[in-house]
Design a binder for these strands. Structure first.
Lengths: 353, 353
DNA sequence: TTGAAAGCGCTACCAG
DNA sequence: CTGGTAGCGCTTTCAA
């Protein structure tokens, strides 16, 4: 009986494997493997015969077979809150680009800011035996995901998170400092009544850190420069909130109306500016807005009048490079705080007519 | 000698496998497999013992082993030009969400609008034996990727592409019609001199299709309504172009200056509006701008004065549902044209963050 | 320079 | 209801 695997029937039935290539080229599968992985150790003539067979059969190496055998899977897992936020999306673009250059496969998941889904997503990624992970967590402190990753001893890099503990790898801007600088700049422009617009703290540790910086700046201005600052105010907005008009009403109207809004993120800044206009306020003029994040590389929009900018796509690339170092054991986990660039004055924006 | 695999040493050395679980629970690996895949066929008592062993050992099923064995890998590949464009990013968010609900793993790649990279990325995806693909191609006509996919007989859905051939699955708005409607609306507002701002045709077939619709609308207005239209003008912009100020100068100044710009995409509309302001023009007022795309669900910004909108996140979800149908063989490939909603008047608005 | 063979972790078939 | 077993496609010794 003809061995079906080296016969002809499989041709239409299933995808060609190394066996078929080997049979076609008249060599063993070990040789085919060598041609794929270390062609230098095989005579040119043989290499060519095998390559010809591969081309003829349209052979495609099965990564799953390889992964099962090898220690490394050459894949990385990525977890972000949502791709609907351009900040995260561009960072993923950076990750993907860098991964592509290294021939790594990217497995993508999103949590929608839900810690429960974070855990599930990471679990799936681990089941896939990724070599490492890049994550943006809702809250990086006391996080079960981090405990899990550490206990499983798998390399990971936090992106945008700025955790308390210093033994985990993290790449971020200095959230508190960014907010501090923006607030200070706005105070320098004469603002005395300021509010911060931020996401709920439980779904974004960045929010809380930025709020801290905001308060600190007001406090310092009062204390050191004797500026007659109104107490810092906070407007917390839930993720997914689509319209800030009514939410911001208390802040934008009445005798205690603020003259400036410091926003925790670009998206909130855009939303806030829209809300300002809905209330008949001009931006700038009656009110100023400042935002953190800044979408710079490949630059989309920076619709803020005052912003702390760090190119997020580049941050993604850096995160992958960092992760690679960890995977290879060449680097130790550490917190990397990237400098932000403060840009004041009006920048481009669809928000202005 | 103690069999190392069931001994104790592996504990620190390697990850636990079904063997270890089986040994711990005092059953065979076949039973462990059943507990995972069809617990109903196993007595409750046994199930619990096995589950306990899994928990104790922190067992994690290895998807690569499973994939090697099974016909389906329960993974899908996604290819977009870039995640830096919110339109694609939100669509990926939709795909990821839907995939997550179905327990599918998403492999993400990006082409940066480069056909060469498209082919490489898809090739990698196929090496991973994904069950199907969702792709946004630079140009879906006469595309080697499509030929490859068809010859390999693997299910795929085009997203945003609107190919000539009718035997491939595609989900898109009607590009020509969108541009036609926007242009018509602007003509209705009194504009007689219009230009289209579009990406280079070779890196986006949508651009060309939208330009066709633009020209058609002007032609029809002239022919049927006798409107004294100036000839349609075209400003082609390379992907990644960040500043349209000088590029648009010829269109915005001089005696032949246009009064309106129809933009092929949201991103271009944003950039165009910015350029208009740089030239001292108010938007709207001296000039009007209209854009196609529209980021609606999860909506970021729709900074257009006149736009054709179709929620892109939902499009991603639909694409995955469509793909699932193809994979299961329940659906035939067909082109799905989603309706666009024409929104005129000023709408700058944010939404989620 | 090459090949035979032993698995990687898993599923599914078949026999008990 | 359970266990033994034959691979899935691949890499990697170890011999020849």
């Amino acid at each position: 009986m003809v061995c079906p695997v080296e016969g002809v029937l499989w041709f239409m039935t299933s995808k060609p494997t190394m066996r078929n290539v080997a049979a076609k080229a008249g060599v063993s599968i070990a040789t085919v493997s060598r041609v794929i992985n270390c062609p230098d150790e095989v005579p040119t003539e043989t290499v060519e015969r095998v390559r010809a067979a591969m081309a003829y059969l349209k052979y495609r190496p099965n990564m799953n077979g390889r992964r099962l055998k090898m220690a490394q899977t050459r894949s990385v897992g990525v977890l972000v809150p949502t791709m609907a936020n351009p900040v995260f999306a561009t960072s993923v673009q950076g990750i993907e680009q860098a991964a592509n250059e290294d021939g790594l496969t990217v497995l993508l998941t999103s949590s929608e800011y839900d810690p429960e889904r974070e855990l599930g997503a990471v679990s799936t990624l681990l089941n896939n035996r990724v070599d490492g992970l890049i994550l943006t967590l809702a809250n990086a402190d006391d996080n079960r995901v981090i405990d899990l990753l550490i206990s499983e001893n798998i390399p990971f890099v936090l992106l945008f998170n700025q955790p308390n503990r210093t033994d985990v790898a993290a790449i971020s801007v200095d959230n508190a400092k960014s907010a501090y600088d923006i607030t200070q700049a706005m105070i320098g422009q004469g603002h005395r009544k300021l509010a911060m617009v931020a996401g709920h703290f439980e779904s974004s540790d960045r929010s809380r850190q930025r709020y801290d910086g905001f308060c600190q700046a007001i406090d310092d201005a009062q204390r050191n420069d004797g500026a007659p600052m109104a107490a810092p105010r906070l407007c917390q907005v839930g993720f997914g909130e689509t319209d800030l008009e009514s939410i911001l009403e208390d802040f934008l109207t009445g005798p205690d109306a603020v003259t400036g809004l410091v926003c925790s993120t670009d998206m909130l800044a855009i939303a806030a500016m829209s809300a300002c206009r809905s209330h008949g306020l001009s931006v700038p003029g009656d009110v100023s807005v400042g935002g953190i994040d800044g979408i710079a590389v490949g630059g989309l929009i920076t619709p803020k009048l005052c912003s702390a900018v760090q190119p997020t796509q580049k941050m993604g690339q850096q995160a992958l490079a960092f992760l690679l170092g960890l995977i290879r054991g060449q680097t130790e986990p550490q917190s990397l705080l990237l400098p932000h660039q403060l840009s004041t004055g009006e920048s481009i924006g669809p928000a202005r007519h």
